[in-house]
């Protein structure tokens, strides 16, 4: 980098090489731009531009079929007083709160168990299999299995003397059931990430602890958990961001119902945009969600950074 400040005039003998160095630098920069160009086009056209356009649309009243009408911040103002919007925030939050802790805890348990008891790659392949099928497919199969009167799940509940559960058909259980389906699909991946994290923990730490007479639980709390924190942070960042955007499973199982019980933010946006054709309003909600996600990500990135230095 210091080369850049060397003047080509500082010596005639250097002029030639200096020019060629500048030329080389120029060529390298050009190469850089050329290499980045396709990706940059993709970024500019499909990320940057639409973000700006979404902001514009959010300031209009537009039903797709007629010309948009500028309304200023009216959409955002309406949003603040829209009970349905706030309800969808509550539902989404409930979903995140059911989904994340359970999925993380189960994934961790699964990882530790397979690390200690069965390290076969076949076991891990079996556990990861739900992740390989789509949300739509998992949603459909579970919809069939969770049917209130006909489903297999209820047949088993009754067989062990428990009452029928309505699951997806009930306003009280719909969102838990949707969370359950997501947990089924994603726990394997979470477990796999934790499992990989476990492999990077130096084994001598356990040996030393065991020599001092530490039990399994103590070692888990004192060694495993603290050293797994970077992976934990990664898992939490990705799953929380993903959970705020749950949509597919809901589209095939409940369509936001019954009685709005599973109308999460993304369904609310979808409904407004593509069923009521209120593009402006839907964009306003999208922008708000974007801001909230940035906030969450920033907070988590901070945690992530702190944790990384923890490991070193």
């Amino acid at each position: 980098m210091t080369d850049r400040h060397r003047s080509p005039l500082s010596g005639t003998s250097r002029t030639a090489s200096g020019t060629s160095r500048a030329a080389r630098k120029w060529r390298e920069a050009l190469t850089g731009y050329a290499f980045v160009a396709p990706a940059f086009v993709g970024f500019a056209v499909f990320y940057l531009l639409p973000t700006v356009r979404a902001m514009q649309i959010s300031l209009t009243d537009w039903n797709l079929l007629r010309a948009p009408r500028f309304v200023g911040l009216a959409n955002f103002e309406r949003l603040l007083h829209d009970d349905k919007f706030w309800h969808s925030c509550e539902v989404t939050l409930a979903y995140v709160l059911y989904n994340i802790p359970l999925q993380t805890a189960l994934g961790l348990a699964l990882a530790v168990l397979s690390d200690r008891l069965a390290r076969s790659v076949i076991l891990r392949a079996l556990i990861i299999s739900p992740y390989l099928i789509s949300n739509v497919v998992s949603g459909l199969i579970w919809l069939f299995m969770l049917d209130p009167l006909l489903g297999l799940t209820n047949a088993w509940l009754v067989a062990v003397g428990l009452p029928h559960q309505p699951f997806l058909a009930s306003p009280d259980q719909a969102i838990i059931s949707v969370a359950g389906i997501s947990i089924w699909r994603h726990t394997g991946l979470t477990a796999l990430l934790f499992y990989a994290g476990l492999q990077s923990i130096p084994k001598h730490l356990y040996e030393a602890a065991r020599l001092e007479g530490a039990g399994e639980w103590l070692m888990f709390r004192r060694i495993t958990l603290p050293l797994l924190r970077p992976v934990m942070a990664f898992v939490l960042v990705t799953t929380i961001i993903g959970s705020f955007q749950v949509f597919d499973v809901i589209a095939v199982t409940t369509s936001g119902g019954p009685a709005d019980a599973s109308r999460v933010i993304l369904w609310f946006i979808y409904e407004n945009a593509f069923q009521f054709n209120k593009m402006g309003y839907a964009s306003a909600v999208s922008i708000l969600l974007f801001l909230v996600l940035i906030l969450i990500t920033l907070v988590q990135m901070r945690l992530l950074r702190a944790d990384q230095s923890d490991l070193d």
Binding site: S170, T253, T254, P258
Partner: peptide, 20 residues
């Protein structure tokens, strides 16, 4: 009658077919 929570998205026709 079945209550609203017993008929899932599949509707009553599967229940009819299953004799419920």
């Amino acid at each position: 009658s079945t209550n609203g929570e017993q008929v899932g998205r599949l509707g009553p026709s599967p229940l009819f077919a299953a004799g419920k």
